[in-house]
Design a protein around this nucleic acid. Structure first.
Lengths: 125, 125
DNA sequence: TCTCTGCTTAGACGGACGTCAAGACAGGCT
DNA sequence: AGCCTGTCTTGACGTCCGTCTAAGCAGAGA
């Protein structure tokens, strides 16, 4: 398990989906929904949303688990579980360097999700 | 219960949150995460994601339940349940006109979610 | 090699979720 | 009024989710 650079069979969302048009422009097909819904689901937890933000906004683009864990009133395994969820959703990437494990965001899928939610600039107000 | 124009005590997300900066720019505070995570969670189901898209992309900005239900291999109550979830997440608004019930999207919160997921245009490729 | 620290995995438990069948309510038509 | 159509609510059931404790694995240092 340790001889591969990417230890998990993470779904490669960013490369698979055809970089969908806005949700409000044309109806999202079932296949696209099935692929992207898990990403939204992964962001649908307050802890994971904060984790995602901490990772994406970290200096150097990566955050150490040792910095993430003490920011919550949760046990280490619970944080690890949430990080695994983000990993399996294709939102983050993990890399072990020496003692510590670093997580970094995948901007491509974030862009994809943002594009999907894009709507016309102003309603009228 | 039937003497009010808005039958449900829907959370007014769009008006409450301070229209947050991008997730990758500064760390999302716990309160913001607690408010916005349910919206992502509501979109974290393939059926609801398609429903949201069908409503948001409908002509006139609104869609009838009678048009939404036959698009899925699910029973009416199940679709109704999903629509209720979207309603309670503040993503859509419902209005009864005669026999049919029409749903319309709330662009404000969609914009808010899209803004939160916004990242720098291109990484380098 | 031994031990210590950091992170993940395994197993368990309570609660929430997705689905359905059956019943209730609202509005239109005869 | 009475019926019919369309939608929502209720109650139930099986599954998944979030959390914990306990145990396992990987690296670093003595």
């Amino acid at each position: 398990m340790s001889n591969q650079p990417t230890p998990l069979p993470v779904v490669d969302l960013a490369a698979d989906a055809p970089c969908c048009p806005p949700l409000a422009q044309r109806r999202v097909p079932a296949e696209t929904a099935a692929v992207l819904a898990p990403a939204f689901k992964a962001l649908g937890d307050p802890v994971r949303l904060q984790l995602m933000s901490m990772i994406a906004s970290a200096e150097g683009g990566e955050a150490c688990v040792c910095d993430l864990t003490p920011a919550f009133d949760l046990t280490g395994p619970t944080i690890s579980h949430h990080l695994k969820t983000l990993r399996e959703a294709g939102l983050v990437d993990a890399e072990r360097r020496g003692t510590w494990v670093y997580y970094r965001a995948r901007p491509a899928i974030l862009r994809q999700l943002a594009a999907l939610l894009t709507v016309e600039p102003a309603p009228g107000a």
